[in-house]
Simulated scan of single mutants.
Amino acid sequence: MAVHLVTGAGSGIGSVLARRLLDRGDDVVLLARDAGRAREIAARFPGATTIVGDLGQPGRLSWALSKQRLPERLDSVVHVAGVVDLGAVADLAPALWEQQLAVNLVGPAELTRLLLPVLRVSRGQVVFVNSGAGLHAHAGWSAYAASKHGLKALADALRAEEAEHGIRVTSIYPGRTATPMQARVHQQEGREYEPERFIDPESVATTILTALDLPRDADITDLTVRPGA
């Protein structure tokens, strides 16, 4: 039975992915930012294991995980959690840069570092759910796009470094997806949110599962998912 650790299971893509992994009988470990969130997630996903670690405080992740029981092996770590705050470079305060870089980039890097020993045991896989913003930056998206461009660099370097241990690394770049984050983006943009115009989170989850289930004779390194016509 495969064992997966998923971040961002509280809503959107992460929530859909966690449910589908559980429904097919896999073991699922869900990372929550605090104990209250962990209780909420555990109630929503019976059968899953929850652990607590705040990606917004990367320097404390090692301490937090050392106080909890972790799996002895992991077949995958799927990084879905993310935050976004839009704004022009001229207007963005350092705190907004720091938060997005921490949650979207430094936190995933540190969590991956801490879990590499158990990933190596099973020759597992790391999946980074990136964004179209990780490939192209637009006005108002500087901090978020910078964090996602950095996430691509992290994935590319990790792939080269861990190939000798048999670890596969995949970056997935969804376009705009109908999630609570997208609703918040539209609020920041001052536009009406019409979820039917965007990718269904189920479709992105299917893409992630495709990468996870790919036979070992092949590797999906980068995959872009765009809204359909």
Rank of each mutant, 00 (worst) to 15 (best):
M1W: 03
A2V: 14
G8L: 13
A9G: 02
A9C: 01
G10R: 09
G10T: 11
S11Y: 09
G12V: 03
L17M: 08
R20D: 15
L21C: 15
L22N: 04
D23V: 11
R24F: 08
D26F: 13
D27C: 15
V29M: 07
L30H: 12
A32L: 08
A32F: 04
R33P: 06
A35P: 06
R39H: 13
I41W: 06
A42N: 07
A42K: 14
F45P: 12
F45M: 10
V52M: 07
G53C: 01
R60N: 05
L61A: 03
L61C: 05
S62M: 08
S62P: 03
A64T: 07
E72V: 14
L74A: 00
S76T: 07
H79C: 09
G82L: 00
V84I: 11
L86V: 01
D91W: 02
P94M: 06
W97K: 01
W97P: 00
E98H: 14
V106Q: 08
A109R: 11
E110G: 09
R113Y: 02
L116Y: 02
R120G: 06
Q125C: 15
L135W: 14
A137M: 14
A139R: 15
W141G: 10
S142P: 10
A146F: 06
S147A: 11
K148P: 12
L151E: 03
L154E: 04
D156H: 12
L158R: 02
A160C: 09
A160L: 13
E161G: 00
I167Q: 02
T170I: 02
S171F: 11
S171M: 03
I172L: 15
I172A: 02
G175H: 03
G175R: 03
R176D: 09
T177L: 05
T179A: 05
P180K: 03
Q182R: 10
Q182K: 00
R184G: 07
V185A: 10
E189S: 10
E189P: 00
E189R: 14
R191V: 09
E192K: 13
E194F: 08
E194N: 12
F198M: 06
D200G: 08
D200H: 15
P201I: 00
V204P: 07
A205Y: 04
L209D: 01
L209S: 01
L209V: 02
L209M: 08
T210F: 14
D213Q: 11
D219Q: 14
R226P: 06
P227N: 05
